[in-house]
């Protein structure tokens, strides 16, 4: 149970009922309007429009290949790195179009961080992994400031207790769950406003998953979080807003509790009851 107590504080198990949030009171950080994605001649997304609330967890669910990850990667323009991908429509962060040619994608990604499906620590020390973002962006003015950023990021990611004595060891030597928390710490270290998580627990065992879910719940106090997940239970546990994707369409979106207890759409119902997926 070391891994569990390693966290700074033990909160009550996160589930829908324990975290009632009035989404309507939240401001909207991200607005997407009529977003389409083409890979070559193949259309992967058909006109997605959604609002993403501030300081809450929004989850994208849906069967494999439904476009949820593709949409997630539009939000910090990761699709730019894929040859032949074309994005249409608008996505605005605080009212600013992120696909505006005058906008710098480097700066955008510093504001919108990302955590990936498979833990992908760099082949560097734990310290350097976390310090990577602040270093490239020039966020720390001194060595001491950098130490501070690294330490606090590791604390926020709930990894500090486990790694504080071995910051110089390679990040690739950690366990899968630890690696993923290291990646979260790495993303936090840049102080992004939004954190995108692409199935962050799909490569982890249940215990590691539970720890990450708890972490996500904590992080929502300071960050806007968007998570793509395969698991409906996970969406129900960690998110306040849920969007259901199917075949490149956004089928339904709303408060997580509403989606899971009272879906308006037949397809959504079929999916959450396990008939499609």
């Amino acid at each position: 149970m070391d891994t569990l107590t390693g966290n700074t504080r033990v909160t009550q198990s996160p589930d829908v009922t324990s975290t009632p949030v009035e989404l309507s009171k939240r401001t909207t950080r991200l607005t997407a309007r009529d977003v389409t994605v083409h890979y070559g001649s193949k259309q992967a997304l058909h006109g997605i429009s959604i609002d993403i609330p501030d300081r809450a967890v929004t989850s994208f669910i849906g069967p494999s290949g439904c476009g949820k990850s593709t949409f997630l990667r539009c939000i910090n323009r990761m699709n730019d790195t894929i040859e032949g991908a074309k994005v249409g429509g608008t996505i605005k962060l605080d009212g600013e179009d992120i696909y505006d040619p005058s906008l710098d994608v480097v700066e955008l990604r510093a504001r919108i961080g990302m955590v990936f499906q498979k833990p992908n620590p760099f082949p560097k020390s734990i310290y350097d992994n976390v310090a990577y973002g602040p270093r490239i962006h020039g966020l720390a003015r001194s060595r001491a400031e950098m130490d501070e950023i690294v330490h606090s990021s590791l604390r926020k990611a709930g990894l500090w207790q486990e790694v504080k004595d071995r910051l110089a060891e390679p990040g690739t030597g950690l366990s899968g769950g630890q690696q993923q928390r290291l990646c979260i710490a790495r993303a936090i270290a840049v102080s992004p406003e939004v954190i995108l998580m692409d199935e962050p627990c799909s490569a982890l065992d249940p215990i590691a998953t539970a720890i990450i879910e708890e972490l996500i719940d904590e992080l929502r106090e300071n960050y806007t979080i968007v998570i793509v997940t395969h698991s409906m239970q996970q969406a129900a546990r960690v998110s306040q807003k849920t969007a259901f994707f199917h075949l490149g369409n956004l089928v339904e979106e709303g408060n997580t509790s509403d989606i899971f207890t009272n879906p308006r759409n037949k397809q959504t119902q079929d999916y959450i009851t396990g008939r499609i997926g």
Partner: peptide, 22 residues
């Protein structure tokens, strides 16, 4: 504990980043 980055106003962080962008 002090949180360096969070305690700093957001605009300052953005400015830091922008300064290096060129």
């Amino acid at each position: 504990m002090t949180d360096v980055t969070a305690s700093r106003p957001l605009s300052e962080r953005t400015q830091l980043i922008r300064k290096n962008l060129r």
